[in-house]
């Protein structure tokens, strides 16, 4: 056997090389190109690319209230969705990790919305909000259904939140279930024998032990909500009057509809920095709370 074939560098490049290559071409290259374009006035198709220095960044920071508004919308949306989808996902998981007869069926049902794509979901829910809700409202006269769904700022915001939570909670539920099944039952029994109530067990034993799952779920839901685009695009199109335009959508419109690719990528770079900082803070905080068994 030739020695060099089994050497460390050879092994590394054979096993990691292809993945690294794919990663470099699909992720790193576009990312670096994006940074490069953000300093230019490229329109997306022209063969002429002129460097404009920091002009794009200056425009965004000084002369683009829309970007600030979509950032504020995205922040509110993210906080609401992250809180609701994690709480609901955890509660469902908690209930469904109890020995129920129908739990496998229920798990499937709650996970199902995740299988459907965001675009499709958006169109389906648009129909539900604008047609079904008003039909139910007319028939029953319940105020909730008689609201002008998707037609006002608030209903459009909450419409998006409802669909996102409905879609995301099932996925988080699966992660929480995995976390919950790993909690050793002898610990729970010991606590119960010591006279701890259900809530006390949950608060002082279960929660600390599933912190790794919480870290993952928070990270996932934060990055989903921040980058949400497809649902936003199909459900509200950013309307009414751009009040529900997420940052991703703002970037897309700037780069592809208004033919300002340079400005769009500059927005994307700023957005990237913001999301990175926030997720890094979140991960480092929740990591500290994890308990080693």
């Amino acid at each position: 056997m030739k020695r060099w074939l089994t050497s460390q560098p050879m092994q590394q490049s054979v096993f990691l090389g292809p993945a690294l290559l794919v990663y470099a071409i699909i992720m790193m290259l576009p990312f670096l190109l994006g940074i490069y374009y953000s300093f230019s006035d490229w329109n997306g198709v022209s063969s002429q690319i002129n460097g404009v220095g920091l002009q794009n960044y200056k425009t965004i920071l000084t002369d683009d209230p829309d970007f600030g508004r979509s950032l504020w919308f995205t922040a509110r949306f993210t906080v609401t969705v992250v809180l609701l989808s994690n709480v609901i996902g955890f509660l469902i998981a908690y209930v469904l990790s109890k020995p129920l007869k129908s739990r496998n069926v229920l798990r499937t049902i709650f996970f199902m919305p995740n299988v459907l794509g965001g675009l499709l979901l958006g169109f389906i829910w648009q129909f539900i909000f604008t047609r079904s809700f008003s039909a139910i409202g007319q028939a029953t006269d319940i105020g909730f259904f008689n609201l002008f769904w998707l037609g006002t700022e608030n209903t459009a915001f909450w419409g998006l939140v409802i669909v996102s939570v409905w879609q995301g909670a099932g996925y988080l539920m699966v992660i929480y279930i995995a976390g919950l099944t790993n909690v050793p039952s002898d610990l729970m029994e010991a606590a119960a024998i010591d006279g701890a109530s259900g809530l006390q067990v949950l608060r002082h034993i279960v929660l600390p032990l599933i912190m790794p799952a919480v870290t993952i779920c928070l990270f996932l839901s934060i990055s989903w909500a921040f980058k949400s685009f497809d649902l936003n695009f199909s459900l509200t199109q950013g309307g009414p009057y751009k009040s529900t335009e997420s940052v991703a959508m703002n970037i897309y419109f700037e780069a592809f509809k208004s033919n300002r690719y340079g400005l769009g990528t500059a927005k994307a770079v700023i957005f990237f920095v913001i999301v990175t900082i926030i997720t890094m803070i979140q991960v480092s905080i929740t990591k500290k709370k994890e308990v080693e068994m």
């Binding site: 037609g151 006002t152 309307g239 009414p240 009057y241 751009k242 419109f253 700037e254 509809k257 208004s258 033919n259 300002r260």
Partner: peptide, 19 residues
């Protein structure tokens, strides 16, 4: 100008909703 029409549309939607 590029990007003006969506802004016009948004302002008109605001007007329709009475904002």
């Amino acid at each position: 100008p590029n990007g003006a029409a969506p802004e016009f549309g948004a302002s008109m939607q605001k007007y329709v909703s009475g904002k």
